[in-house]
Simulated scan of single mutants.
Amino acid sequence: MTAEQQLPSMGGAVDLSALAARHAQPAQPQQQSAEGGAQGAPGVIVDIADAEFGAVVELSNQVPVIVDIWAEWCGPCTQLSPMLERLVAGYEGRLVLAKIDADANPQLVQAFQAQSIPTVAAVIGGRPVPLFTEAIPEEQVRDVLEQVLAFAEQQGVTGRVPVEGAAAPAEPEPDPVPPLHQEAYDALEAGDLPTAIAAFEKAIAQNPRDAEAIAGLAQVRLLERLQGKGADEVRAAAGGAPDDVAAQMLVADLDLSGGHVEDAFLRLLDLMATLAGDAKQDVRLRLLDHFEIVGLDDPRVAAARRRLTTLLY
């Protein structure tokens, strides 16, 4: 197969399961140790014989296995095999290379229908895919390996085997914090709520769709309203003045800060149902702040929004 050819459909592939089933408890493939093998890639480059083939078929359900059928007397193999080892090792566990000595393993040669040496194939999801039967340039080999990975992904074979010494995948860099957000966070850390509010307000003025700033502003305003006030004091004030809208809204703030979300929403919605004009608008805005604090995707917010809509129209 050349680099320009696409991998064939799996429909006509020979089923290797019968051969693999001959070894009910297959041994695990051993690490390639021959001279010229890729060092530092245990489990990625392996020598296999008939007894280990079941393990290779099983492994191919998690990661594509490249099969290199070679022989000591094969001149092209001396160029192709080291190249395959180096290229496969470079994929750091996304591919495994299984090397088969043709003279020592005639059953496997027959299973892969190898008519000449070298023969290179892949095993993906327990079934073989022929690749090429001669030494080809490195760039073409690399293209074939990329096609194998793409085809394996279509089959849902996307695993990776652990590779000793391989660098762990880098953690994605966090998005930089916008300067005004950072200013607000620094002010909060210092207990300076007015400065935090001003920073978030400026961020929203620059970008009215800044969801983080909108939610942050709602949270800091809640903290400011409750600053220096005890829970008993807030509830006593509201109990002594049931018609005081500001006092009732403050109790809702207290409920929300304590995690009693439904209670806060219910208090504000019931209060809003009794009001008109500017007072009703004030309660609506407080509710919207509470929605931002809880999170707009929270189902409790969705339920409260539905009732709010009925109160507005």
Results as ranks from 00 to 15, higher is better:
17 S>K: 11
59 L>V: 00
35 E>L: 09
4 E>C: 07
166 A>L: 02
29 P>N: 08
153 E>K: 08
51 A>Y: 00
139 E>V: 12
120 V>R: 02
122 A>R: 01
80 L>D: 04
25 Q>V: 14
184 A>S: 07
310 T>D: 09
188 L>I: 15
149 L>A: 01
161 V>T: 08
79 Q>S: 11
63 V>D: 09
175 D>W: 10
241 A>F: 08
90 G>W: 03
258 G>Q: 15
6 Q>C: 05
245 V>Q: 04
4 E>T: 15
238 A>T: 04
257 S>W: 03
128 P>M: 14
303 A>F: 08
260 H>P: 01
291 F>H: 00
27 A>S: 10
308 L>R: 05
47 D>H: 09
99 K>Q: 02
300 R>F: 09
31 Q>K: 05
30 Q>T: 10
282 D>Y: 05
192 D>R: 03
306 R>T: 05
45 I>Q: 02
97 L>I: 01
268 L>Y: 05
54 G>W: 02
118 P>K: 03
243 D>Y: 11
43 G>A: 05
168 A>D: 04
137 P>M: 15
187 A>T: 09
216 G>R: 01
277 G>K: 10
303 A>G: 03
255 D>K: 10
183 E>T: 15
130 P>N: 02
23 H>Q: 15
70 W>D: 02
102 A>M: 01
145 L>A: 00
64 P>H: 07
232 D>F: 11
